[in-house]
Design a protein around this nucleic acid. Structure first.
Lengths: 351, 351
DNA sequence: TGTTAGCACTCAATCGGTTGGAGTGCTAAT
DNA sequence: ATTAGCACTCCAACCGATTGAGTGCTAACA
């Protein structure tokens, strides 16, 4: 059987009504929907067909219908672009100044959560493909050396090295030269033991210290390779009874949203997706979600880009009956704002 | 009326039983308590007295009794030290290496939450009284200068300054000298406009740039003046029905626990407390808590110290029927570990 | 005089039965 | 093909009875 226009109209009515109420939708309710001219009995017949075809579900006999994952999927794929989106102005997104990446992302995730009223997640770019821009060692005092690394996107990493014997200023200068000449423009994955060994040899004397320092520099660059994640608005799930009535699952969702490790996994899994690559935005419904915890949720993800093709992720998590239109719009607006702000920010390297 | 030994025994029995069950405690239950030789009728009479005196509460007629805030307070003040605490070894707390403060604190807060099974909060020291240890400017490229500041406790701050015209290496060197000479050892609150103006004058030429850089350095030092807070284990509240059965309040608590601003307020308010200053640990019960959100919780706070008297806070939040003994023990152990680790870490300055 | 056994009383929680209403599926008429 | 009408189903809410934990009081006792 095929979905004719009337079935689509009814399916649409069911889904949109369910978005508002969160309750199963009955045939009488649909019959009052604008654009519906036929009676509730006809609707009931059609609903039986829709249920057979798997687009809607009846929680129990004599209850109304709710959309199935397949129904949501159809809605997102076919019905979403129908209405033309009135582009509301993205006020309050002021990413003007070249700020530190961290600050920007924190701002973005808060903004996203406030705007959509759903829990939001933003990740910094995966540093594995990010490039070293600048390295600097400095003597803090006789026993401590400060090591600072600036990466693409003005991501700054630092570490303090405890050394046994002090390093003279000339040697420090030499080391800095050496480091910048050898490491500049490399990605995290380019840095390996072989390279370090080569640098150590070309540094010559001061074996012990040089080795320790070099190792720490390499370590500093490769640390946090796994990118950072920021979240905001986790408690928004309490606005949706279907996610928070069950204490068990509510706790699990919040737990997941505050577990950086898990979120990283999650972002990694979503990042390599063809649909995402094509449109820049991807909607996942229920079981399509990579995390077991979120089987009753929908997730919308997008990626943003630094100038050098390094990608970070934005995601919002919500109930299946989320306002997909608004979310996708907000998301794409933020994605664009972010793309622009960051390209500008880190472009100084390329120019 | 005074609390005689028998009343204290009964009060203790009520409180400890309530800790386990979370349910009102009846006279028959108490009569089976080890050490109780008298009958339930006697206990009932005593309980009437205890209720009149305000130590226990009857939620409704024909229900058992639960401790009041006053009862908890009495318990914490008078009954806690009675038993000698078997000192369990604080395994897993490896603060050996001089790591970055941030990493240590994140580790500590996770450990605390895992050990106690209560939501935990740890704050970095208030930087307002923290001292500048080292300042360093470096040229990243023609248009960007990296500014790094190391504070006491090896807290590292950094910022990237966008400049219009490049700053020559000699001038950069001069600036670094100037900065370190003038700022070293100062606290955040020591840094004011007057000082900056004096430095600008002694720098001489390059008016525009110098001013911009100086301002940014000052800004970098004073940023995050409000200290940072880390949390872990917020979802532990779901283990205690009295805190999580009501969705409203559960949401509020978790909200508070992820709202850095609010937590900062909270920590500030708890930090200047005489009892805390005396013992290093303070227990707040119900309404004694500074935050409205936590009126049904108890909070245990402690402060740890850097070598220079700079203080940070540790706190755990839980139900009133929390295992005070265990919490206070764990807390004091972590506090000591932290004190030791951090004093060692930042002592290099004093030595 | 302090303690205790016994008893009547209270009240929240729970259980089973009833009811109401929303909603369906089917059938017969249009 | 559509629709009105009706019997049927099932959940949710309501209600009253019952249960049981727990109290307060009184009278008896050591």
């Amino acid at each position: 059987m095929e979905l004719d226009d009337r079935k689509i109209l009814i399916l649409n009515a069911i889904i949109e009504t369910y978005f508002e109420t969160g309750e199963p939708v009955g045939s009488r309710t649909i019959s009052k929907f604008p654009g519906v001219t036929f009676s509730s009995a006809t609707i009931r017949n059609e609903m039986q067909d829709l249920e057979e075809m798997g687009y809607i579900i009846q929680p129990h006999t004599s209850a109304g219908r709710i959309p199935s994952d397949k129904g949501y999927r159809f809605y997102v794929d076919n019905m979403l672009e129908a209405k033309d989106s009135e582009i509301t102005d993205m006020k309050g997104l002021l990413l003007e100044k070249t700020e530190k990446l961290e600050a920007i992302l924190k701002q973005v995730v808060t903004l996203l959560a406030k705007t959509t009223q759903y829990p939001s997640v933003v990740s910094s770019p995966a540093v594995a493909t990010n490039r070293v821009k600048f390295v600097q060692l400095s003597n803090v005092n006789e026993s401590q050396i400060l090591c600072v690394v600036v990466m693409g996107g003005n991501l700054v990493k630092n570490r303090i090295i405890d050394v046994i014997e002090p390093l003279s200023n000339e040697n420090l200068l030499k080391m800095n030269m050496l480091l910048n000449t050898n490491l500049n423009g490399l990605t995290v994955s380019d840095i390996n033991l072989e390279l370090i060994e080569r640098m150590r040899r070309s540094a010559g004397e001061h074996e012990g210290i040089v080795e320790q320092v070099l190792k720490t520099v390499a370590d500093t660059i490769t640390e946090d390779e796994e990118f950072e994640v920021y979240t905001s608005g986790a408690t928004n799930i309490f606005k949706y009874p279907e996610l928070s009535d069950n204490k068990e699952s509510a706790s699990e969702i919040i737990e997941t949203l505050s577990d950086r490790e898990e979120l990283r996994e999650f972002i990694k899994e979503t990042q390599n997706d063809e649909e995402l690559k094509k449109n820049g935005i991807r909607v996942m419904i229920g079981a399509e979600t990579p995390l077991e915890t979120m089987k009753d949720c929908s997730v919308v993800t997008a990626t943003y880009e630094l100038s050098d093709g390094v990608k970070g992720s934005i995601a919002i998590i919500g109930p299946k009956r989320m306002d997909y239109r608004k979310v996708v719009e907000t998301m794409s607006r933020i994605k664009n704002g972010l793309d622009k702000a960051l390209k500008k920010g880190s472009s100084s390297k390329e120019e």
